[in-house]
Simulated scan of single mutants.
Amino acid sequence: MAYKDYYDVLGVSRGASDADIKSAYRKLAKTYHPDKNQGDEKAADKFKEIGEAYAVLNDPEKRKVYDQFGHTGQVPPGYDTGGFQGGDFGGFDGSQFSDFFQDLFGRATQGGAGRRGGVSTNFGGMPGTGGAGFPGGAQVNLEDLLGGLGGAGQSRRFVQNVEGELQVTLSEAYHGSDEVINVDGKRLSLRVPAGTRDGARLRLAGQGPGGGDVLLTIRVLEDASFELEGDDLTTVVDVPAPVAALGGDVKVRTLAGTTGNLSIPAGSSGGRKMRLRGQGWPRKGGGHGDLYVRLNLTVPKTLSDREKELYQQLRDLQS
């Protein structure tokens, strides 16, 4: 079997830092995550592949062995690996745990999992398991888990916090949003505060299995109408060419849901930015940033006879 180079899989150099590797993994995982590519087997295989690569390159001991001895990790006798025993790096799929994690966080197809499937099952390394791990999230002591499942009267014991991601729209992040997630068969309600930023962390203390915490990273989805930068928002509004030339009003919708008139000065050109103060993102200390409106000049695709006549007159004046 021909193995792919893990550095090539993540698109990083062999001298990449831990931060570079983590950043590359997060970008690729976001692109190929099964939640965004339902029914796409190639995307699922790619997601599995980058997970395998990250599990090795993010672990200093495994990366050291991989760099020296390649994909198979066959270590000569007596070589000090710092505790890692080597072995074939390939074959990572996590299928033996997939049903467990889906049950833990609720399947997207079940009711009560919340919109967008509740917490995405993008779980991370499982320290102490001796396996490749699941990059980026729920951490469980595998020995305790298997021990709990193996004997009558024994119960599963989770000794670490559970992590996941919760996706919200830009509008939900702006206004705040009430969400319901499913953790280990238990429905949990939570409030995403108004003005939440991408990457913000929410903690549900004591709500995880065995009294652990549920740690959620908020992922704010991109919006086709608004772009957020700092405390300011930017939107684009279409302006008919005659209005741009002579001046006039156009309607502008804000993320808050209100619609108002914006006065366009005569002689405005396409790409010009105009500012609406206080119509941007909520600030921590109170108030809002600004909303910038970028003008997009438009011309009609079809013209009436009268419009053609007027445009011809205008063209003749400029010739």
Rank of each mutant, 00 (worst) to 15 (best):
L291H: 10
F123I: 10
L216E: 07
V192E: 10
D290Y: 06
A256R: 05
L202H: 12
A29R: 09
P135D: 05
E172P: 01
D238F: 08
K27H: 06
G248D: 07
T129R: 07
S177V: 12
F226R: 03
A19Q: 08
N122G: 14
D45E: 13
P135K: 05
V237A: 12
F105N: 03
G286H: 10
L204Y: 13
R253Y: 10
G133I: 06
L190H: 01
G230W: 03
G78V: 08
D5W: 04
H288Y: 15
W281R: 07
L221V: 04
G270F: 01
K36E: 11
M274C: 04
M274K: 01
Y32D: 02
S189A: 14
D18M: 13
K22D: 15
V237D: 03
A194H: 01
R197G: 11
S17N: 06
R253N: 15
D198L: 00
L221Q: 12
Y174G: 09
G114T: 05
Q139G: 03
G176Y: 02
T31P: 00
I264N: 02
I218F: 07
V220L: 07
G153T: 04
V250M: 02
A113M: 11
D184K: 03
T72H: 15
V162F: 05
S120T: 12
L297H: 05
K42E: 11
G267H: 05
G90A: 13
F101E: 02
H288E: 06
F92D: 08
K251M: 12
N261T: 11
G210K: 01
Y292K: 10
G199L: 04
L188I: 14
L104C: 08
G211L: 03
K64F: 02
G90T: 07
G150L: 09
G111W: 07
Q312R: 15
L142T: 11
G289D: 06
S189G: 15
V252T: 04
Q207H: 00
I264W: 07
V220I: 08
L145M: 09
T235P: 02
A2L: 14
L170P: 00
Q102H: 12
R275V: 15
A224E: 12
P76V: 07
E165R: 10
A205V: 14
V293N: 09
R315Q: 15
G87N: 09
K30Q: 13
R115A: 14
G211N: 01
D20Q: 14
L216G: 06
Q110M: 09
E309H: 05
L276M: 14
Q318D: 13
G285W: 04
D80M: 02
H175F: 11
L233P: 01
R115Q: 11
T121K: 14
L146V: 09
D232I: 06
D88S: 10
Q74S: 14
L28S: 06
T258E: 14
A43K: 11
L303D: 01
K22R: 15
G131V: 10
A16N: 10
L215G: 04
L246S: 13
N296E: 12
S269I: 06
L291N: 11
G285I: 07
D316Q: 13
W281K: 10
V239L: 14
P265Q: 09
S268N: 05
V239P: 11
E52Q: 07
R277S: 14
E165F: 05
G133A: 07
